[in-house]
Nucleic acid binder design. Structure first.
Length: 466
RNA sequence: CGGAGCGUAGCGCAGCCCGGUUAGCGCGCCAGUCUGGGGGACUGGGGGUCCCGAGUUCAAAUCUCGGCGCUCCGACCA
Protein backbone atom coordinates (compact mmCIF):
# COMPACT_ATOMS: atom_id res chain seq x y z
CA UNK A 1 0.00 0.00 0.00
CA UNK A 2 1.26 3.44 -0.91
CA UNK A 3 0.66 5.86 1.90
CA UNK A 4 -0.21 8.51 -0.67
CA UNK A 5 -3.23 6.44 -1.62
CA UNK A 6 -4.14 5.20 1.83
CA UNK A 7 -6.32 6.72 4.53
CA UNK A 8 -4.20 7.21 7.62
CA UNK A 9 -5.25 10.32 9.55
CA UNK A 10 -2.56 10.46 12.22
CA UNK A 11 -2.53 13.14 14.88
CA UNK A 12 0.49 14.80 16.31
CA UNK A 13 -1.29 15.81 19.47
CA UNK A 14 -3.43 13.68 21.71
CA UNK A 15 -7.14 14.44 21.85
CA UNK A 16 -7.85 15.47 25.42
CA UNK A 17 -10.53 12.90 26.15
CA UNK A 18 -8.04 10.06 25.87
CA UNK A 19 -6.51 9.10 29.19
CA UNK A 20 -5.04 5.66 28.85
CA UNK A 21 -2.21 4.86 26.51
CA UNK A 22 -4.05 2.50 24.18
CA UNK A 23 -6.81 5.04 23.62
CA UNK A 24 -4.32 7.84 23.01
CA UNK A 25 -2.24 5.82 20.60
CA UNK A 26 -5.20 4.46 18.70
CA UNK A 27 -6.53 7.94 18.14
CA UNK A 28 -3.14 9.32 17.21
CA UNK A 29 -2.34 6.43 14.90
CA UNK A 30 -5.59 7.00 13.03
CA UNK A 31 -6.98 3.58 13.99
CA UNK A 32 -10.31 4.56 15.48
CA UNK A 33 -12.79 7.39 15.58
CA UNK A 34 -15.21 7.90 18.44
CA UNK A 35 -18.79 8.28 17.22
CA UNK A 36 -20.52 8.40 20.62
CA UNK A 37 -19.65 7.55 24.20
CA UNK A 38 -18.19 4.04 24.09
CA UNK A 39 -18.88 3.61 20.37
CA UNK A 40 -16.09 3.63 17.83
CA UNK A 41 -15.52 3.32 14.11
CA UNK A 42 -12.50 1.31 13.07
CA UNK A 43 -10.52 3.26 10.48
CA UNK A 44 -8.47 1.31 7.92
CA UNK A 45 -5.37 0.83 10.06
CA UNK A 46 -7.38 -0.24 13.10
CA UNK A 47 -9.48 -2.50 10.96
CA UNK A 48 -6.41 -4.31 9.70
CA UNK A 49 -5.32 -5.08 13.25
CA UNK A 50 -8.80 -6.12 14.31
CA UNK A 51 -8.98 -8.43 11.30
CA UNK A 52 -5.67 -10.02 12.24
CA UNK A 53 -6.84 -10.58 15.80
CA UNK A 54 -10.07 -12.15 14.55
CA UNK A 55 -8.17 -14.36 12.13
CA UNK A 56 -6.09 -15.86 14.92
CA UNK A 57 -9.11 -16.24 17.18
CA UNK A 58 -10.92 -18.13 14.39
CA UNK A 59 -7.98 -20.36 13.60
CA UNK A 60 -7.70 -21.46 17.21
CA UNK A 61 -11.44 -21.93 17.67
CA UNK A 62 -11.54 -24.07 14.55
CA UNK A 63 -8.52 -26.05 15.68
CA UNK A 64 -10.27 -26.85 18.96
CA UNK A 65 -13.30 -28.15 17.10
CA UNK A 66 -15.66 -25.18 17.36
CA UNK A 67 -17.84 -24.38 14.35
CA UNK A 68 -18.35 -20.83 13.12
CA UNK A 69 -21.78 -19.36 12.38
CA UNK A 70 -23.31 -15.90 12.68
CA UNK A 71 -26.23 -14.79 14.82
CA UNK A 72 -27.97 -11.43 14.56
CA UNK A 73 -27.32 -8.42 16.75
CA UNK A 74 -31.01 -7.75 17.32
CA UNK A 75 -32.95 -10.28 19.37
CA UNK A 76 -36.54 -10.73 20.41
CA UNK A 77 -37.29 -10.05 24.06
CA UNK A 78 -39.43 -13.19 24.15
CA UNK A 79 -36.32 -15.38 24.13
CA UNK A 80 -35.02 -13.57 27.16
CA UNK A 81 -38.32 -13.88 28.94
CA UNK A 82 -38.00 -17.65 28.58
CA UNK A 83 -34.73 -17.76 30.47
CA UNK A 84 -35.87 -15.12 32.93
CA UNK A 85 -33.01 -12.82 32.09
CA UNK A 86 -35.12 -10.12 30.42
CA UNK A 87 -35.93 -8.80 33.86
CA UNK A 88 -32.63 -9.81 35.47
CA UNK A 89 -30.22 -8.21 33.07
CA UNK A 90 -30.92 -4.66 34.09
CA UNK A 91 -30.38 -1.39 32.34
CA UNK A 92 -27.18 -2.55 30.71
CA UNK A 93 -29.36 -4.14 28.06
CA UNK A 94 -30.36 -1.83 25.27
CA UNK A 95 -34.09 -2.34 24.82
CA UNK A 96 -35.80 -1.18 21.65
CA UNK A 97 -39.21 -1.50 20.03
CA UNK A 98 -39.87 -2.25 16.40
CA UNK A 99 -42.63 -0.58 14.34
CA UNK A 100 -45.17 -3.10 15.58
CA UNK A 101 -44.33 -2.12 19.13
CA UNK A 102 -42.72 -5.47 19.82
CA UNK A 103 -39.99 -5.62 22.44
CA UNK A 104 -36.58 -6.18 20.92
CA UNK A 105 -33.08 -5.78 22.24
CA UNK A 106 -29.54 -5.33 20.97
CA UNK A 107 -27.83 -8.48 22.17
CA UNK A 108 -25.35 -8.22 25.01
CA UNK A 109 -24.70 -11.98 24.64
CA UNK A 110 -26.31 -14.97 22.93
CA UNK A 111 -26.98 -17.82 25.35
CA UNK A 112 -30.74 -17.69 24.79
CA UNK A 113 -30.53 -17.51 21.03
CA UNK A 114 -28.05 -20.33 20.65
CA UNK A 115 -30.14 -22.47 22.98
CA UNK A 116 -33.18 -21.77 20.85
CA UNK A 117 -31.28 -22.78 17.71
CA UNK A 118 -29.96 -25.89 19.37
CA UNK A 119 -33.30 -27.11 20.65
CA UNK A 120 -34.89 -26.59 17.24
CA UNK A 121 -32.62 -29.16 15.61
CA UNK A 122 -30.76 -31.39 18.02
CA UNK A 123 -32.56 -34.36 19.53
CA UNK A 124 -30.00 -37.05 20.23
CA UNK A 125 -26.83 -37.53 22.20
CA UNK A 126 -25.36 -38.77 18.92
CA UNK A 127 -25.19 -35.21 17.68
CA UNK A 128 -23.00 -34.23 20.60
CA UNK A 129 -20.60 -32.80 21.50
CA UNK A 130 -21.24 -29.58 19.67
CA UNK A 131 -19.57 -26.20 19.95
CA UNK A 132 -20.90 -23.28 17.91
CA UNK A 133 -19.35 -19.84 17.85
CA UNK A 134 -19.61 -16.52 16.12
CA UNK A 135 -17.94 -13.14 16.03
CA UNK A 136 -20.51 -10.42 16.36
CA UNK A 137 -20.95 -6.93 17.73
CA UNK A 138 -22.43 -6.74 21.18
CA UNK A 139 -23.88 -3.82 23.05
CA UNK A 140 -23.88 -3.30 26.78
CA UNK A 141 -25.14 0.05 27.87
CA UNK A 142 -22.52 0.67 30.54
CA UNK A 143 -23.31 3.51 32.88
CA UNK A 144 -19.90 4.83 32.34
CA UNK A 145 -17.98 3.73 29.29
CA UNK A 146 -14.31 4.66 29.50
CA UNK A 147 -10.76 3.89 28.50
CA UNK A 148 -11.55 3.89 24.79
CA UNK A 149 -11.94 0.41 23.39
CA UNK A 150 -11.12 -1.16 26.74
CA UNK A 151 -14.59 -0.56 28.01
CA UNK A 152 -16.78 0.61 25.22
CA UNK A 153 -20.50 0.04 24.99
CA UNK A 154 -20.37 -1.55 21.58
CA UNK A 155 -17.68 -4.18 21.25
CA UNK A 156 -16.82 -7.12 19.07
CA UNK A 157 -17.02 -10.48 20.79
CA UNK A 158 -16.22 -14.02 19.86
CA UNK A 159 -18.67 -16.13 21.80
CA UNK A 160 -18.71 -19.90 21.65
CA UNK A 161 -21.33 -22.20 23.17
CA UNK A 162 -20.79 -25.85 23.95
CA UNK A 163 -23.41 -28.60 24.23
CA UNK A 164 -22.75 -31.94 25.87
CA UNK A 165 -24.64 -34.98 27.00
CA UNK A 166 -23.46 -34.92 30.60
CA UNK A 167 -21.30 -33.08 33.08
CA UNK A 168 -18.09 -35.01 32.35
CA UNK A 169 -18.37 -34.35 28.63
CA UNK A 170 -19.13 -30.68 29.32
CA UNK A 171 -15.92 -30.37 31.32
CA UNK A 172 -14.00 -31.78 28.39
CA UNK A 173 -15.57 -29.09 26.19
CA UNK A 174 -14.60 -26.50 28.78
CA UNK A 175 -11.05 -27.76 28.74
CA UNK A 176 -10.87 -27.56 24.97
CA UNK A 177 -11.69 -23.88 25.11
CA UNK A 178 -9.32 -23.40 28.01
CA UNK A 179 -6.44 -24.69 25.91
CA UNK A 180 -7.63 -22.88 22.79
CA UNK A 181 -7.55 -19.63 24.76
CA UNK A 182 -4.02 -20.20 25.98
CA UNK A 183 -2.94 -20.75 22.40
CA UNK A 184 -4.89 -17.79 21.05
CA UNK A 185 -3.40 -15.24 23.41
CA UNK A 186 0.05 -16.71 22.97
CA UNK A 187 -0.19 -16.28 19.21
CA UNK A 188 -1.33 -12.71 19.72
CA UNK A 189 1.96 -12.06 21.46
CA UNK A 190 0.44 -11.94 24.95
CA UNK A 191 1.16 -13.80 28.15
CA UNK A 192 -2.19 -14.79 29.55
CA UNK A 193 -2.88 -16.28 32.93
CA UNK A 194 -6.12 -18.12 33.68
CA UNK A 195 -7.62 -16.99 36.96
CA UNK A 196 -10.57 -18.24 38.96
CA UNK A 197 -13.45 -15.88 38.31
CA UNK A 198 -16.88 -14.73 39.35
CA UNK A 199 -19.59 -15.88 37.00
CA UNK A 200 -21.66 -12.68 37.03
CA UNK A 201 -24.89 -12.49 35.05
CA UNK A 202 -23.97 -15.48 32.85
CA UNK A 203 -24.12 -17.73 35.90
CA UNK A 204 -22.67 -21.17 36.44
CA UNK A 205 -20.36 -23.09 38.69
CA UNK A 206 -16.97 -23.05 36.97
CA UNK A 207 -15.34 -20.09 35.36
CA UNK A 208 -11.94 -18.68 34.45
CA UNK A 209 -10.89 -15.25 33.36
CA UNK A 210 -7.87 -14.97 31.10
CA UNK A 211 -5.80 -12.05 32.28
CA UNK A 212 -2.85 -10.38 30.66
CA UNK A 213 -0.52 -8.33 32.80
CA UNK A 214 -0.23 -4.64 31.99
CA UNK A 215 0.66 -1.71 34.21
CA UNK A 216 -2.45 0.11 33.14
CA UNK A 217 -4.71 -2.88 33.71
CA UNK A 218 -8.12 -2.27 35.22
CA UNK A 219 -8.00 -4.87 37.97
CA UNK A 220 -5.55 -6.01 40.60
CA UNK A 221 -4.38 -9.55 40.15
CA UNK A 222 -2.29 -11.92 42.21
CA UNK A 223 -0.51 -14.98 40.94
CA UNK A 224 2.46 -17.29 41.10
CA UNK A 225 5.36 -16.07 39.01
CA UNK A 226 5.93 -19.49 37.44
CA UNK A 227 2.88 -18.99 35.25
CA UNK A 228 4.82 -16.41 33.28
CA UNK A 229 7.24 -19.09 32.12
CA UNK A 230 4.76 -21.86 31.41
CA UNK A 231 4.90 -23.19 27.87
CA UNK A 232 1.66 -23.05 25.93
CA UNK A 233 0.44 -26.32 24.34
CA UNK A 234 1.56 -26.86 20.75
CA UNK A 235 -0.61 -26.64 17.68
CA UNK A 236 -0.63 -30.41 17.29
CA UNK A 237 -2.27 -31.02 20.65
CA UNK A 238 -5.06 -33.62 20.41
CA UNK A 239 -8.24 -31.89 21.49
CA UNK A 240 -10.05 -35.25 21.62
CA UNK A 241 -7.72 -36.60 24.28
CA UNK A 242 -9.79 -35.76 27.33
CA UNK A 243 -7.29 -37.06 29.89
CA UNK A 244 -4.40 -35.15 28.40
CA UNK A 245 -6.41 -31.92 28.20
CA UNK A 246 -7.44 -32.34 31.81
CA UNK A 247 -3.80 -32.75 32.79
CA UNK A 248 -2.88 -29.56 30.94
CA UNK A 249 -5.69 -27.60 32.55
CA UNK A 250 -4.74 -28.94 35.96
CA UNK A 251 -1.20 -27.81 35.40
CA UNK A 252 -2.41 -24.34 34.46
CA UNK A 253 -4.68 -24.08 37.47
CA UNK A 254 -2.58 -25.76 40.17
CA UNK A 255 -0.73 -22.62 41.22
CA UNK A 256 -2.37 -19.63 42.81
CA UNK A 257 -3.91 -17.02 40.48
CA UNK A 258 -6.84 -14.76 41.27
CA UNK A 259 -8.26 -11.36 40.60
CA UNK A 260 -8.97 -9.06 43.52
CA UNK A 261 -12.62 -10.18 43.78
CA UNK A 262 -11.55 -13.77 44.40
CA UNK A 263 -8.29 -12.97 46.13
CA UNK A 264 -7.31 -15.12 49.10
CA UNK A 265 -4.57 -13.28 50.96
CA UNK A 266 -3.67 -16.31 53.06
CA UNK A 267 -3.20 -18.56 50.06
CA UNK A 268 -1.18 -15.86 48.34
CA UNK A 269 1.04 -15.53 51.39
CA UNK A 270 1.93 -19.22 51.17
CA UNK A 271 3.67 -18.60 47.84
CA UNK A 272 7.41 -18.07 48.36
CA UNK A 273 8.01 -14.32 48.46
CA UNK A 274 10.16 -14.23 45.35
CA UNK A 275 7.50 -16.06 43.36
CA UNK A 276 4.64 -13.74 44.21
CA UNK A 277 3.29 -11.42 41.56
CA UNK A 278 0.91 -8.67 42.57
CA UNK A 279 0.17 -6.66 39.47
CA UNK A 280 -2.49 -5.13 37.32
CA UNK A 281 -4.21 -7.05 34.60
CA UNK A 282 -6.66 -6.85 31.75
CA UNK A 283 -9.35 -9.44 31.22
CA UNK A 284 -9.25 -10.56 27.61
CA UNK A 285 -11.27 -13.75 27.79
CA UNK A 286 -13.77 -15.44 30.05
CA UNK A 287 -15.04 -18.99 30.00
CA UNK A 288 -18.04 -20.42 31.85
CA UNK A 289 -19.48 -23.82 32.53
CA UNK A 290 -23.10 -23.41 33.58
CA UNK A 291 -24.62 -26.85 33.01
CA UNK A 292 -28.36 -26.72 32.53
CA UNK A 293 -29.02 -23.12 33.56
CA UNK A 294 -30.50 -22.26 30.16
CA UNK A 295 -31.32 -25.67 28.75
CA UNK A 296 -33.71 -26.47 31.59
CA UNK A 297 -35.97 -23.42 31.46
CA UNK A 298 -35.74 -23.34 27.67
CA UNK A 299 -36.27 -27.10 27.34
CA UNK A 300 -33.21 -27.85 25.25
CA UNK A 301 -33.11 -31.61 25.76
CA UNK A 302 -31.47 -34.57 24.07
CA UNK A 303 -32.27 -38.24 24.43
CA UNK A 304 -29.51 -40.36 25.90
CA UNK A 305 -28.48 -43.95 25.21
CA UNK A 306 -31.35 -45.11 27.39
CA UNK A 307 -33.88 -43.11 25.39
CA UNK A 308 -34.65 -40.69 28.21
CA UNK A 309 -34.60 -36.94 27.50
CA UNK A 310 -32.34 -34.79 29.60
CA UNK A 311 -31.37 -31.09 29.48
CA UNK A 312 -28.15 -30.56 27.60
CA UNK A 313 -25.05 -29.40 29.52
CA UNK A 314 -23.70 -26.10 28.32
CA UNK A 315 -20.87 -23.66 28.62
CA UNK A 316 -20.03 -20.35 26.98
CA UNK A 317 -16.70 -18.84 26.07
CA UNK A 318 -16.00 -15.21 25.25
CA UNK A 319 -13.08 -13.29 23.80
CA UNK A 320 -13.24 -9.58 23.03
CA UNK A 321 -11.22 -8.91 19.87
CA UNK A 322 -11.86 -5.17 19.93
CA UNK A 323 -10.73 -4.98 23.53
CA UNK A 324 -7.76 -7.18 22.64
CA UNK A 325 -6.54 -4.61 20.15
CA UNK A 326 -6.38 -2.10 23.00
CA UNK A 327 -4.95 -4.66 25.43
CA UNK A 328 -2.14 -5.52 23.04
CA UNK A 329 -1.19 -1.85 22.90
CA UNK A 330 -1.33 -1.54 26.68
CA UNK A 331 1.07 -4.45 26.88
CA UNK A 332 3.30 -3.39 24.00
CA UNK A 333 4.22 0.23 23.37
CA UNK A 334 6.91 2.78 24.15
CA UNK A 335 7.15 6.56 24.32
CA UNK A 336 7.04 6.88 20.56
CA UNK A 337 4.09 4.69 19.79
CA UNK A 338 2.72 1.22 19.36
CA UNK A 339 4.91 -1.86 19.01
CA UNK A 340 2.77 -4.45 17.27
CA UNK A 341 3.51 -8.11 17.75
CA UNK A 342 4.19 -9.27 14.17
CA UNK A 343 1.18 -11.58 14.14
CA UNK A 344 -1.29 -8.71 14.40
CA UNK A 345 0.66 -5.84 12.84
CA UNK A 346 -1.35 -3.91 10.25
CA UNK A 347 1.60 -4.14 7.87
CA UNK A 348 4.62 -6.40 8.05
CA UNK A 349 7.02 -3.67 7.03
CA UNK A 350 7.14 -0.03 6.07
CA UNK A 351 9.48 1.48 3.51
CA UNK A 352 10.63 4.96 4.44
CA UNK A 353 11.89 6.93 1.47
CA UNK A 354 14.12 9.44 3.23
CA UNK A 355 14.44 11.71 0.23
CA UNK A 356 11.23 11.63 -1.68
CA UNK A 357 11.58 12.99 -5.18
CA UNK A 358 15.24 12.12 -5.62
CA UNK A 359 15.80 9.86 -8.57
CA UNK A 360 17.90 7.23 -6.86
CA UNK A 361 15.87 6.83 -3.66
CA UNK A 362 12.59 6.87 -5.53
CA UNK A 363 13.84 4.18 -7.87
CA UNK A 364 15.18 2.05 -5.04
CA UNK A 365 11.94 2.32 -3.11
CA UNK A 366 9.79 1.53 -6.10
CA UNK A 367 11.82 -1.53 -6.91
CA UNK A 368 11.74 -2.69 -3.33
CA UNK A 369 8.05 -2.04 -2.99
CA UNK A 370 7.19 -4.02 -6.09
CA UNK A 371 9.47 -6.87 -5.12
CA UNK A 372 7.95 -7.16 -1.67
CA UNK A 373 4.42 -7.05 -2.99
CA UNK A 374 5.20 -9.65 -5.59
CA UNK A 375 6.09 -11.93 -2.70
CA UNK A 376 2.82 -11.31 -0.89
CA UNK A 377 4.44 -9.26 1.83
CA UNK A 378 2.13 -6.69 3.30
CA UNK A 379 4.18 -3.53 3.00
CA UNK A 380 3.38 0.12 3.47
CA UNK A 381 5.41 2.52 1.34
CA UNK A 382 5.71 5.96 2.94
CA UNK A 383 5.91 7.92 -0.30
CA UNK A 384 4.76 11.32 0.94
CA UNK A 385 6.99 14.35 0.50
CA UNK A 386 7.88 14.66 4.17
CA UNK A 387 11.07 15.12 6.08
CA UNK A 388 12.80 11.96 7.31
CA UNK A 389 12.13 12.79 10.95
CA UNK A 390 8.45 13.02 10.27
CA UNK A 391 8.46 9.65 8.53
CA UNK A 392 10.31 8.03 11.42
CA UNK A 393 7.83 9.47 13.86
CA UNK A 394 4.88 8.15 11.89
CA UNK A 395 6.43 4.72 11.49
CA UNK A 396 7.14 4.53 15.23
CA UNK A 397 3.65 5.73 16.08
CA UNK A 398 1.80 3.16 13.98
CA UNK A 399 4.14 0.44 15.17
CA UNK A 400 5.01 -1.45 11.99
CA UNK A 401 7.46 -4.18 13.07
CA UNK A 402 10.06 -3.52 10.39
CA UNK A 403 11.11 -0.11 9.19
CA UNK A 404 13.06 -0.21 5.97
CA UNK A 405 14.94 3.04 5.51
CA UNK A 406 16.07 4.05 2.08
CA UNK A 407 18.10 7.22 1.90
CA UNK A 408 20.94 8.75 -0.10
CA UNK A 409 23.42 8.14 2.67
CA UNK A 410 22.81 4.41 2.81
CA UNK A 411 22.69 4.08 -0.95
CA UNK A 412 26.03 5.83 -1.35
CA UNK A 413 27.95 3.86 1.23
CA UNK A 414 29.33 0.35 1.08
CA UNK A 415 26.90 -2.30 2.27
CA UNK A 416 26.30 -2.36 5.97
CA UNK A 417 23.52 -3.26 8.30
CA UNK A 418 22.93 -1.35 11.49
CA UNK A 419 21.32 -3.31 14.27
CA UNK A 420 18.60 -1.01 15.44
CA UNK A 421 17.87 2.41 16.80
CA UNK A 422 16.98 3.10 20.38
CA UNK A 423 13.79 1.09 20.47
CA UNK A 424 12.84 -2.51 20.14
CA UNK A 425 11.31 -1.84 16.78
CA UNK A 426 13.18 -3.61 14.05
CA UNK A 427 14.97 -1.38 11.66
CA UNK A 428 16.77 -2.18 8.49
CA UNK A 429 19.05 0.29 6.83
CA UNK A 430 19.10 -0.51 3.20
CA UNK A 431 22.68 -0.32 2.12
CA UNK A 432 24.47 -0.32 -1.19
CA UNK A 433 22.67 -0.33 -4.45
CA UNK A 434 19.40 -2.16 -4.43
CA UNK A 435 20.94 -5.33 -5.65
CA UNK A 436 19.64 -8.81 -5.28
CA UNK A 437 20.84 -9.55 -1.80
CA UNK A 438 19.47 -6.78 0.42
CA UNK A 439 16.29 -7.13 -1.46
CA UNK A 440 16.17 -10.78 -0.67
CA UNK A 441 16.80 -9.99 2.93
CA UNK A 442 13.80 -7.78 2.96
CA UNK A 443 11.72 -10.43 1.31
CA UNK A 444 11.77 -12.05 4.65
CA UNK A 445 9.91 -9.32 6.41
CA UNK A 446 6.58 -10.90 6.95
CA UNK A 447 4.20 -12.34 9.39
CA UNK A 448 6.12 -14.11 12.07
CA UNK A 449 3.61 -16.93 11.95
CA UNK A 450 4.37 -17.57 8.29
CA UNK A 451 7.59 -19.53 8.60
CA UNK A 452 8.89 -18.72 5.14
CA UNK A 453 8.63 -15.03 5.91
CA UNK A 454 10.25 -15.09 9.28
CA UNK A 455 13.07 -12.66 9.82
CA UNK A 456 15.24 -12.33 12.87
CA UNK A 457 17.97 -10.02 13.92
CA UNK A 458 20.69 -12.62 13.84
CA UNK A 459 19.87 -13.25 10.25
CA UNK A 460 19.88 -9.59 9.35
CA UNK A 461 23.33 -9.27 10.82
CA UNK A 462 24.58 -12.37 9.08
CA UNK A 463 26.50 -12.64 5.82
CA UNK A 464 23.33 -13.53 3.95
CA UNK A 465 22.09 -10.03 4.37
CA UNK A 466 24.74 -7.95 2.65
C1' C B 1 -26.40 6.68 39.48
C1' G B 2 -23.65 10.15 43.22
C1' G B 3 -19.40 13.86 42.83
C1' A B 4 -16.24 17.09 39.62
C1' G B 5 -15.23 19.38 35.06
C1' C B 6 -15.20 20.58 29.88
C1' G B 7 -17.63 22.16 24.95
C1' U B 8 -14.04 28.41 20.74
C1' A B 9 -10.88 25.98 13.02
C1' G B 10 -9.03 18.93 11.84
C1' C B 11 -6.00 18.51 16.87
C1' G B 12 -4.06 21.15 21.34
C1' C B 13 -5.30 25.65 23.63
C1' A B 14 -5.94 31.33 24.95
C1' G B 15 -9.87 34.90 25.25
C1' C B 16 -14.87 34.46 29.44
C1' C B 17 -14.04 36.76 36.06
C1' C B 18 -14.23 42.59 34.43
C1' G B 19 -19.76 42.34 27.85
C1' G B 20 -17.50 46.75 23.33
C1' U B 21 -12.31 46.65 16.63
C1' U B 22 -12.57 42.09 11.59
C1' A B 23 -12.30 36.10 17.74
C1' G B 24 -6.53 34.83 18.50
C1' C B 25 -2.07 31.38 19.02
C1' G B 26 0.68 26.60 18.11
C1' C B 27 0.41 22.20 15.22
C1' G B 28 -1.87 20.30 10.99
C1' C B 29 -4.00 21.86 5.85
C1' C B 30 -3.18 24.61 0.63
C1' A B 31 0.57 27.28 -2.89
C1' G B 32 5.63 28.43 -3.62
C1' U B 33 11.04 28.59 -2.53
C1' C B 34 15.13 26.59 -0.05
C1' U B 35 15.71 21.75 1.99
C1' G B 36 16.22 16.43 3.25
C1' G B 37 19.04 10.31 8.38
C1' G B 38 14.53 11.66 14.18
C1' G B 39 8.01 15.71 13.63
C1' G B 40 12.87 21.80 9.19
C1' A B 41 12.93 27.27 7.61
C1' C B 42 10.81 31.30 5.04
C1' U B 43 6.79 33.77 2.22
C1' G B 44 1.80 33.81 1.07
C1' G B 45 -3.12 31.56 1.79
C1' G B 46 -7.65 28.93 3.19
C1' G B 47 -10.48 27.34 7.25
C1' G B 48 -15.23 29.36 12.75
C1' U B 49 -23.55 28.16 13.42
C1' C B 50 -17.51 30.40 19.70
C1' C B 51 -22.39 22.99 21.42
C1' C B 52 -27.96 24.27 20.97
C1' G B 53 -32.19 27.29 22.55
C1' A B 54 -34.30 31.18 25.26
C1' G B 55 -33.37 35.57 28.12
C1' U B 56 -30.76 40.29 29.97
C1' U B 57 -28.45 44.43 27.21
C1' C B 58 -27.54 49.72 22.69
C1' A B 59 -24.11 45.49 22.36
C1' A B 60 -23.06 38.41 24.34
C1' A B 61 -17.71 33.62 22.93
C1' U B 62 -18.10 36.54 27.60
C1' C B 63 -23.76 37.47 32.10
C1' U B 64 -28.62 34.33 33.45
C1' C B 65 -31.80 30.03 32.76
C1' G B 66 -32.87 25.50 30.25
C1' G B 67 -31.24 21.58 27.16
C1' C B 68 -27.65 18.40 24.56
C1' G B 69 -22.87 16.20 24.14
C1' C B 70 -18.25 14.58 26.11
C1' U B 71 -14.55 13.51 29.95
C1' C B 72 -12.65 12.36 34.83
C1' C B 73 -13.23 10.18 40.22
C1' G B 74 -16.43 6.68 42.79
C1' A B 75 -20.33 2.40 42.74
C1' C B 76 -20.92 -1.56 38.30
C1' C B 77 -19.19 -4.77 33.90
C1' A B 78 -16.34 -8.66 28.02
Amino acid sequence: MRLSRYFLPTLRETPKEAEIVSHRLMLRAGMIRQEAAGIYAFLPLGHRVLRNVCRIVREEQDRAGAIEMLMPTIQSADLWRESGRYEDYGREMLRIKDRHDRDMLYGPTNEEMITEIFRAYVRSYKDLPLNLYHLQWKFRDEVRPRFGLMRGREFLMKDAYSFDVDHAAAIHSYNRMFIAYLRTFDRLGLKSIPMVAETGPIGGSLSHEFIILADTGESEVYCHRDYLDFAVPNADIDFDDAAMLRAQVERWTALYAATSEKHDAAAFARIPADRRVAARGIEVGHIFHFGTKYSEPMRAVVSGVDGAERPVHMGSYGIGPSRLVAAIIEASHDDNGIIWPPAVAPFAAVILNLKQGAVETDAACERLYRALRARQIDVLYHDLDERPGSKFATADLIGIPWQIMVGPRGLAEPARILPEIATVRGSIFLAGAVSASPENALMRCGRADVPAARVDRAWIESEDCQ
